[in-house]
């Protein structure tokens, strides 16, 4: 606690690095997952195959995956961001596919029937109705990304993990506590914000329990 108050400059710098890795990885991951999910909707078989591969990737221990990525991207943030994209892909794609599939086919046919183009049908009907499930996936992926980004410090990417690893190496208990505390708070805060977004964008929030 004291360390946080004494060295806000360090905390903020590391927090900034941590956020940068997490947010840029998530943005890239969403940009890949969304079109991928739309494609996967067309075929059940391809979808389960792709989800299977992404699931296997998710089971690789994060330190092992980072070591595999080092020769390709070097000892820096890029390797960590790529690893985060790979890990969050399964969470995002699985939720996006589930959300988009959950829209009743009759509703989609009604959309076509009233004369929506396939693009209009997608952004006016299918996406809004799938949004709560998609946002839940983004929230989960955010938490996972924050925790895995902590390991990035070992690979020259900086971030709040630096405090943890330095603390262990230097036997500085205050650094460990400070690092753990800020990472935890960050995860809680983003979780809270995204929960609010889910509630805000729930298309069926008007439904009264009857």
């Amino acid at each position: 606690m004291e360390y946080i108050l004494n060295r806000p400059d360090i905390i903020l710098r590391l927090l900034g690095q941590h956020l940068f890795m997490t947010v840029s990885a998530l943005l890239i991951s969403i940009a890949i997952a969304l079109p991928l999910s739309v494609v996967l909707l067309r075929s059940e078989r391809v979808a389960s195959a792709v989800l299977g591969v992404l699931g296997v990737l998710y089971t690789i221990p994060s330190i092992a995956l980072l070591i595999l990525l080092l020769p390709l991207f070097g000892l820096n943030q890029t390797s960590v961001i790529v690893a985060l994209v790979i890990y969050t892909q399964i969470i995002l794609v699985r939720n996006m596919v589930a959300g988009l599939r959950s829209v009743p086919s009759a509703t989609l046919e009604a959309a076509t029937g009233v004369g929506m183009s396939s693009w209009q049908r997608w952004y006016r009907v299918q996406l809004p109705l799938a949004l709560p499930v998609i946002l839940a996936g983004i929230r989960l992926a955010t938490i996972v990304a924050i925790s895995i980004a902590t390991i990035g410090a070992k690979f020259g990417a900086g971030g709040l993990g630096t405090l943890l690893f330095d603390g262990i190496a230097q036997n500085r208990y205050d650094k460990i506590v400070a690092g753990a505390l800020v990472v935890g708070l960050l995860a809680l805060l983003l979780n809270r914000l995204l929960l609010l977004a889910e509630a805000r964008f729930d298309p069926l929030k008007h439904v009264e329990p009857s």
């Binding site: 009743p104 009759a106 509703t107 046919e109 009604a110 959309a111 029937g113 009233v114 006016r124 009907v125 809004p128 109705l129 298309p203 069926l204």
Partner: peptide, 12 residues
């Protein structure tokens, strides 16, 4: 015009 069962309304 196209009318189907009530599920055809857009719930959102």
């Amino acid at each position: 015009g196209y009318v189907i069962q009530q599920i055809g309304l857009f719930p959102h």
